[in-house]
């Protein structure tokens, strides 16, 4: 499966990773190479196979409905780039 540059640009947008115009052709070639290689899976007959959901042969454990977390705003915000004393901040969003 060959990826064109437009697709790579769209995927990069979806992943929110900046890719310059100059990098697009090389990246398209590289990603196409990887996709071409994994294409070999199409040869496997999986018509009657359930996809694996987890290797753990378990069902979902549940916890009780108990509050276990104390207020910890300072710890939560401590690593935030440009967080103020109460909030994380981001460039203003216009809805």
């Amino acid at each position: 499966m060959a990826l064109d540059q437009k697709t790579v640009a769209r995927v990069a947008m979806l992943a929110r990773i900046k890719v310059t115009e100059a990098d697009l052709p090389g990246l398209a070639t590289e990603l196409s190479g990887i996709l071409g290689w994994i294409e070999q899976l199409q040869a496997v007959d999986t018509s009657d196979v359930e996809p694996m959901t987890s290797v753990a042969d378990l069902t979902l454990p549940m916890r009780e409905d108990v509050v276990t977390v104390a207020a910890q705003r300072d710890a939560i915000l401590a690593n935030g780039p440009e967080a103020n004393e109460s909030f994380f901040t981001v460039p203003k969003v216009v809805e």
Binding site: D65, V67, T68, V69, A71, R73, I76, F87
Partner: peptide
């Protein structure tokens, strides 16, 4: 508590105090 964490759900707390 929340769906996947032990933080409280009460309405009206100070910002980022129930995280």
């Amino acid at each position: 508590a929340k769906l996947f964490s032990g933080a409280p759900t009460a309405f009206g707390a100070e910002p980022n105090e129930q995280v």
